[in-house]
């Protein structure tokens, strides 16, 4: 059971709806489907996602960049309810993980 403590969110004042979430999840072939299905079924807006296995492949780390439209808190709560999600960490929109990738996403 994921923790049911409410997460304290403090979005950047200039980007109140944008955030980067860092998830620690079980690593199995269906886990990405669970995360993406949640976003599509609840009409949450994700504009970037990265996933790599960690800890010898037992777990994965997923980074999601979201445009929350006031739904940030609900997104976090619903993610925490997923059985495969162990932890949800909240970062402000300018987190370096996506900024570092900007070169790889240039359209030539």
């Amino acid at each position: 059971m994921p923790p049911i403590e409410p997460v304290k969110l403090s979005p950047a004042p200039d980007k109140p709806n944008k955030a980067v979430l860092e998830l620690t999840v079980n690593n199995h072939p269906g886990v990405m489907s669970h995360i993406c299905s949640l976003f599509s079924h609840r009409v949450y807006n994700m504009d970037g996602i990265l996933c790599m296995p960690v800890k010898d492949g037992q777990m994965s780390k997923i980074w999601i960049r979201i445009n929350g439209n006031g739904q940030l808190e609900q997104i976090v709560k619903q993610l925490q309810k997923l059985e495969d999600v162990h932890a949800v960490r909240y970062h402000n929109a300018g987190h370096e993980i996506f900024i570092a990738l900007e070169d790889s996403f240039k359209v030539i």
Partner: peptide
């Protein structure tokens, strides 16, 4: 079945 049942179950397993 696994993919189709994700959004309508609390959790599912293959």
């Amino acid at each position: 079945t696994y993919g189709m049942s994700i959004p309508i179950t609390k959790h599912n397993f293959l």
